[in-house]
């Protein structure tokens, strides 16, 4: 198992995932893991998301293939589960909406006819959770996102030790960090007790 490490489940809000369209592999091999690079410079293969399951649809023709929408305070995640995600598909088949769920999954990309890259999530696990878990996730995701923004901003000011991911993200997206800061506040508002 030399060289094996578990991909960390990166925390990001739906808006950030939706704004992302930079997909790459670090190695040429067919089975090399695929990563996305988000506007705030997060490099992610696996992500953790938590929110409200709002819609489940079986879009498969012969086999069962589910599309579900999970809403967080900033937007919606789209997840797809088919025969190779049997546990998740079973969950979605029986799921009630709305319901708090948490998903551990891999980001997958699809290139649309118009050349746009569409990202979705292929769940490894989808589980019913509670509002508390969702709020912890929001707080955690807000914190991690803000940390990434601060790091990127400090890199804009001082380019002496550039982080390659941040550099690529800045070049690709020219992100408006104010937008993401507002997004963070808006999300935190939902997780606040008052």
């Amino acid at each position: 198992m030399a060289g094996y490490f578990r991909e960390i489940a990166v925390r990001m809000f739906a808006k950030e995932l939706r704004d992302s369209d930079l997909v790459y592999r670090e190695e040429e091999e067919q089975y090399a893991p695929q990563y996305i690079l988000t506007p705030t410079g997060a490099k992610a293969n696996r992500i953790l998301l938590s929110g409200v399951l709002t819609e489940v649809e079986n879009i498969g023709n012969d086999t069962e293939y589910y599309r579900a929408r999970i809403s967080d305070p900033t937007g919606t995640f789209t997840i797809y589960a088919g025969q190779y995600q049997a546990e998740s598909a079973r969950f979605l088949a029986e799921a009630k909406t709305p319901e708090f769920v948490t998903v551990v999954g891999k980001v997958t990309s699809f290139k649309a006819d118009d050349g746009n890259i569409l990202l979705s999530v292929r769940p490894e696990y989808i589980q019913k959770t509670e509002e508390g878990d969702r709020n912890i996730w929001i707080a955690e995701t807000a914190e991690k996102t803000y940390e990434r923004i601060l790091e990127a901003e400090s890199q804009i000011e001082n380019e002496s030790k550039p982080n390659e991911n941040i550099k690529n993200a800045l070049d690709h997206y020219s992100p408006k960090f104010d937008e993401y800061k507002k997004m963070i506040l808006q999300a935190l508002e939902i997780a606040s007790a008052e």
Binding site: G132, I136, A142, Y146, K181, I184, L188, S192, A193
Partner: peptide
């Protein structure tokens, strides 16, 4: 089991981002 988000932390982070904005 951690059941609830840490409200103090949320508040602190909120203030930080607010000041920043």
């Amino acid at each position: 089991r951690t059941e609830f988000a840490n409200q103090i932390k949320i508040k602190e982070l909120k203030e930080k981002v607010e000041t920043d904005l």
